[in-house]
Design a protein around this nucleic acid. Structure first.
Lengths: 252, 252
DNA sequence: CGCGGCGTTGAACACGGTCAATTCTTGTGG
DNA sequence: CCACAAGAATTGACCGTGTTCAACGCCGCG
C-alpha cells in the first residue's frame, strides 16, 4: 500500500465528488476537534487483490473508500469464497467501537482509501456527540443494506438476484449522476468493474449460472451486453419486475 | 395489544432474566434522565400473528422484546413471504434516528414487549452520549447478525442453512442458561416455537425441503426429532461441520 | 366421529452446479 | 499494427438439489 500522509493529502482526496459521509462528519466538529480529526487521516493506495484486513484481526484502523471497490470476503473451509458485502466510494469501514473482523477485506479494484488510527478516531467521536450521531446513522444505513441483501439472497432464483444487483448498481450510479436518466438518451449504461466470478461470489452463484442469467436477461430484451463489462439497461421496469421487488423500496 | 402503563409495569418486566440491553441502557443514565427514561416505557402484550408495524410506516415507537418472538417480514408481490430477521428477547427495534420501516413486524408467538415513544426515546439518548453509545453498540451487533445471515443464505444447501439456524438458536439458549451443557446431561434440547412453514420462510426454502433436511440430519444422527417442535441436538460438532462454518465465529 | 391444519412423503420436473470444450478479450511481444 | 498466448466468458451435457403438486398420516377440536 502506497501511503501519503498529512492533511493536504486529505484535502486532495476529499475534494472528490465523493465527499459524503466523511466530509459531513468533519463539518459537525468544532474547530479544534476538526483539526485533530483532519490530522489523523492518511491517504493510501491499495492495489487490486490486496488484502486490507485479515479475518479475525483486531481493527487498528478506520477506513474510508474514496475511489474503487472493496469487498468483505469470507472463505469457506472447502475453498469456496463468499462476498458478504461491497464497500463503495463514500463507505466507512473498520469496526469502530466493535470487536475483531469476522471477515477479510480485499480490494476488487485498485482503490484509494483514507485511513485513520482507530483509537484516535473513536476518541474524537467520543468528544462529539453530534459526530458520533452521524456515525450511528451510517451504521444504520449499512444495516438496511445488509437486510436488503438478505432479502435478495433469500429469494432464490439467480436471474432475480442478478436483476436486483443491477438495479442496486444503477441506484448508485443515478445517485452519483445526481439526475434521472433523460428519456430517449442512450439507455442507462453500466460499467462493471468486476469479473463474472466476483459477481457470482457476491450473488451466491457460480460464474456459469451468472452468465446464463445475464444472457437470459439479454434475450428477454431487458439489457444489452456490449462487452462483458459494459452493459446497457434497456428496460428498468422489466428488471424491477423480474427482481420481484426483492428490494426494500426506498429511493428509486 | 393489551397495554399496561407505568414504571412498576416496567419493573416487573425488567425483573426478568432478560434485563440485557435495555437495563444496561438505564444504568448509564444520570438519575434525572433515568427517571425520565423509565417513565416512557410501557408494557404491552401482543398476540400471535398480530402485526406490530406495517411496512412503509414511519416509526412512532421504539420496542424492546421481553419475551416471545417477532419477525421482520417482507411480502413479495407474488404472495411469497420472506423473513429477513428475527427479534428475540433482549432485542430492540423501532428504527430510532432512522427512516420508515422497509418491512413489516409480526409476532410469531404471543409476545411481551416494552415500548416507548420514539421521539422521547431519541430525545433522551440525545442528552446522554454514553447511552447513545450503548445504543450504537446494539446496532453494530445487529449488523453483524445480518451479515452472518447473508453468509448463511448465500451458502446454498438447505441442510447447511438448517444446521446454521439450529446452532444460532442453540447459541441463544446457551446464553440464557448462562452455562455450557454439562456432558452426559440429556442432550441439548431445543423447543421451537415456530411452525415448519415459518422456519422455511426464514431459511429461504419451502416447508417440504425443510422437512427433508430435518430428517436427513436425524438420519445422520446429528439431531433427534421428538415432536415436530421438540428437537435434541445430539452432535454439535457434526452440526458445525455441516453448517460449513458459515457462521462468523464469535462466541460458541 | 369427522373435519381441518400441519407435517411428512413421493414423483415429476426445473433450476443451478459441475465438468469439459469452445470462443472472446486482452495484454504482450514481434 | 498484427500475431499469439493466457485468462475470462460462454456454451453444452449431465447430474444433484430443491421446488411443485399431490397424497397421506397424525392430532386437536368441534
Amino acid at each position: 500500500m502506497t501511503e501519503v500522509q498529512g492533511s493536504d493529502a486529505f484535502a486532495r482526496a476529499a475534494g472528490q465528488p465523493v465527499g459524503g459521509k466523511l466530509e459531513r462528519l468533519f463539518k459537525v466538529l468544532k474547530p479544534d476537534l476538526r483539526r485533530a480529526m483532519e490530522r489523523i487521516w492518511h491517504h493510501e493506495t491499495v492495489a487490486e487483490d490486496a488484502t486490507l484486513v485479515e479475518e479475525g484481526e483486531e481493527a487498528r484502523k478506520i477506513g474510508y473508500v474514496v475511489d474503487g471497490l472493496l469487498a468483505m470476503v469470507k472463505e469457506l473451509p472447502d475453498g469456496r469464497r463468499h462476498i458478504i458485502g461491497l464497500l463503495t466510494p463514500g463507505d466507512l469501514f473498520g469496526r469502530a467501537f466493535n470487536g475483531p473482523f469476522g471477515y477479510r477485506i480485499v480490494a476488487l479494484t485498485d482503490t484509494d482509501v483514507m485511513t485513520a488510527d482507530r483509537s484516535k478516531f473513536e476518541e474524537i467521536l467520543s468528544q462529539s456527540h453530534e459526530a458520533e450521531r452521524l456515525f450511528l446513522l451510517t451504521v444504520l444505513d449499512e444495516l438496511d443494506s445488509a437486510r436488503e441483501w438478505v432479502m435478495v439472497l433469500g429469494g432464490a432464483k439467480v436471474v432475480e438476484r442478478l436483476a436486483s444487483f443491477l438495479l442496486i448498481l444503477c441506484r448508485h450510479k443515478l445517485r452519483e449522476d445526481c439526475r434521472m436518466p433523460r428519456r430517449g438518451e442512450p439507455p442507462l449504461s453500466l460499467h462493471l468493474h468486476l469479473s463474472r466470478t466476483t459477481i457470482a461470489q457476491y450473488l451466491g452463484a457460480t460464474p456459469e449460472s451468472l452468465s446464463r442469467a445475464l444472457h437470459k436477461l439479454a434475450r428477454d430484451g431487458l439489457i444489452r451486453i456490449n462487452t462483458p463489462y459494459q452493459i446497457d439497461l434497456l428496460d428498468l421496469g422489466g428488471l424491477v419486475e423480474t427482481a420481484g421487488s426483492a428490494l426494500l423500496v426506498r429511493d428509486l
